Amino acid sequence: MLFKLVVIACSCITLSVQNEQVLNRPEGSKCTFNGQEGKCTSIRNCRSAKQGLQKKIHPAICSFEGKTPVVCCMECEQRHSKKIPVYQDIGSRFNDTNRKARNICLRYLANLRYPCDPAPRYLEDDGIPDTNCEPQYDVPGISVPQVSHGYSAIRQQYTHMALLGYGEEMETAQWLCGGSVISERYILTAAHCISSPSLGPVRYVALGILRRSDPERIWQKYNVRRAVPHPEYKSPSKYHDIALLETDTEIIFGNMVLPACLHSELNPGDEAEACGWGALGHHQGLADTLQAVKLQRYDEEKCSQLYPKHRHLVHGYNHTTQMCYGDETDPKDTCEGDSGGPLQIANDVLSCAYDVIGVTSYGRQCGVTAGSGIYTRVYFYLPWIESIVWP
């Protein structure tokens, strides 16, 4: 039986504001919010606003630059920030690493039309004293999404998301597992997703959709030419649960379909997001709209405690090839829905692009108590992926 992914919650952040909460001030102008002096600044460059959002506190909106909010950023941060933004084109970053996957990623980011500008890099300025200027907001009436009830993605937010189909005919296919577009011909997914005991092998890939109910003209469908599980994967074991699907024709990139990058560093950070069209809760139906959830990384000791030796993990949790993410207080994790989908973080060059750090693999009953899921660690498998996708 396919292990599916569900997301029952998400803390993907969007700013939901009412007209009277927009100050209608251009970037660079002075502003006042909650009794503190500030300066209207792009949210990308405002540390205090990002810190507030992590605590579900929305900053005052001065205006919008396209779709990017310009927020009232505290003056102390403007004066004392130790990081000076340096905007560079993507080409100047091409030789950052000798990793093939990283270089391919940079080519995609430079040549394809992602819906945002390159993120700034920073130079340290040790002559400016460090100051803690985290704002203490206490503002009624600002809408904050309830993380415990889940969050629906918006169109073009996760353009690398794939939905995998099973069955004899594409028109009647069952769309179950998830995956990530990583090149013009390959989808990254879980090895246990390449076949279903009841429906047979995976045959189709759907791209470009936000909802299962999207009209047929929006669906970009491809036949699977071949499925390549990792050579050490042996079902029903949960080790080496990673696979590649090659499409029969080249994937057409555009506004709705763009590739994700593969993270080429060992330690990806403490937070990541998972996505899928899975069930909205335990024993609930599949989501129509793509859902996402923000998860916390657990350390090796905690993961080993959560996943001891058993028949599908005969050696217990393997920190070299696996990772586990979840939430210790809220029932946020991946479970029955679409396995094979990405565990991801924002790309360091383009904030609207993503680095895949893991593949959803295995977990316990979700949506009832706080817990975690196991993800295949992409970094360990980069040489194998590169040898097939970019030989």
Rank of each mutant, 00 (worst) to 15 (best):
Y166A: 05
P259Q: 06
P118Y: 07
A119D: 11
Y375S: 03
L210E: 02
Q88P: 00
N98C: 05
C10E: 13
C177T: 07
C72N: 02
F33A: 08
Q174F: 10
T369M: 09
C193D: 06
T247I: 08
K4V: 11
Y362T: 09
D333Q: 14
G127C: 03
S304T: 12
V359R: 01
P145D: 14
Q174R: 13
D327V: 00
L123M: 12
S339M: 06
E250V: 09
R364L: 15
N98M: 12
D355A: 03
K100H: 08
L350Y: 01
I61K: 01
L207R: 03
E273D: 12
G269L: 12
L53D: 01
S11V: 00
C62Y: 02
H315A: 13
A190E: 07
E336D: 13
E37V: 03
R79F: 08
G66W: 04
S81L: 04
Y87Q: 12
I142N: 06
P120H: 07
D138Y: 03
S213H: 07
V71Y: 01
Y375R: 01
D214G: 08
L106M: 14
E168Y: 03
A370P: 15
C105G: 04
D248G: 01
H58K: 09
Y354Q: 10
H310W: 05
T360A: 14
M1D: 13
Q18R: 14
S237G: 15
S372C: 02
Y114G: 05
S16N: 15
P236W: 05
Y239A: 06
S387K: 11
A243E: 03
D89N: 15
V17H: 10
V7C: 11
L313S: 10
P231S: 13
